[in-house]
Amino acid sequence: MSDAVKDVGERLIAFLPNLRRFAISLCRSRDVADDLVQAACERALASAERFEPGTRFDAWMFRILRNLWIDQVRRQKTVGIQDDISERHDIAGSSGEREAEARLTLKTVAEAIGELPEEQREVLILVCVEELSYREAADVLDIPIGTVMSRLARARKSLAETAGITAKTARSHVMKGVEG
């Protein structure tokens, strides 16, 4: 058995929840996302030997998945499919046992993320949620690092506005006691 396939296969299965989350945030539909994840896994396994050990597996997978998605989008545009607006809220998911107020807040942020333009949303997810560096995000998205930064800044300002995240609540985090 090829070590590359075995290695990629093992990492893939462990990575499925993250990959699926990224897919849902791209497609805003769980069904579409699951198909996309599956296609991305097949692609990754078919090119397992291309994965360079020592580089970030998550970034590699995100890139494969996103490239497949772009291809699908290109087709959907062609045949005129519009994404179902109600699916946008799919991304919010269920927040389980959390208390009502918290759920309300979380849903708002999730919705605000869902409403971001795709180019901003993907950068936000990769950097803020999946914790890729700017450089890594730029590689996944095939864009200059400067573009990553400008999109990311716009995404966060818009998120703050839409979800009502205010600077006031942030102050204590930032200064940690420096403030009197």
Partner: peptide, 28 residues
């Protein structure tokens, strides 16, 4: 300036928290 920096820290945290439930969903 503190507030402006805070906004970026806060939005990162908020995005992370908001997306966490998706990670916790059982895989189909």
């Amino acid at each position: 300036l503190v507030a402006r920096v805070g906004l970026f820290i806060e939005t990162r945290q908020a995005a992370k928290t908001a997306m966490k439930p998706l990670l916790e969903e059982p895989l189909p």
